[in-house]
Amino acid sequence: MALLDVADVTVRFGGVTAVDGASISAEQSRITGLIGPNGAGKTTLFNVITGLQPPTAGTVRLGGRNLARWPPSRRARAGMGRTFQRLEAFGSLTVRENVLVAREIHQGVKGLLRGSGSRVDELLERVGISGYAAHRADAVPTGVARLLEMARVLAIDPRLLLLDEPSSGLDESETAAFGALLRELAAEDRTILLVEHDMDLVMSVCDVIHVLEFGRIIASGTPEEIRADTRVQEAYLGAEPASATGGQP
């Protein structure tokens, strides 16, 4: 059974439908990709899954449990962790403190008694940003901030990781290292849902891919199936110029 099961989720903002009856799932210990052009509703769907955005309709289940009306913090304690496309690092803290805070939140009252320092340094090492530990988080390059979000979310030891464009801002070698990290995490029995624009990365690490367009899932399958899917090709070929003129908000 899938660890995460999103069924028929719809989100409307005023007159605009951002997500339109989307259903996706993420299998235990697998990397599931979620791709689609800008404005397709990927981040909105992430917000629904993590409880930041109540859906107009539809359900989200984690390990079979319906999460309706669960606040984000409860979902996090149930093992869900995410990163943000528009970075949500704690800008007035240092990189190390960012991860430390996450660890302390995770440990709760127990954390008051136990030190969390060594684990935090391990995490910084693991994502490869130890060199920035003492820098303020709002003063580091975007790539570092993305990896910081990665270290921070790992500090709460989640079994389901939702990663929103984690590799943008990384150079080629960093992206390769990041892909290896994702594989390692999956091997540690973590489930990953990955929103990503870097098709090479998606195709190389994902076990299953869902394609979202205008709020709807237009295709789901293995990387090979997705690559061969004519609708996906059309959507992507049609979407590239639109996203270029529409631009990032």
Binding site: S73, A76, M80
Partner: peptide, 8 residues
């Protein structure tokens, strides 16, 4: 938002 999704 980040604090919430980290479990606080």
């Amino acid at each position: 938002a980040a604090c919430g999704t980290l479990g606080l």
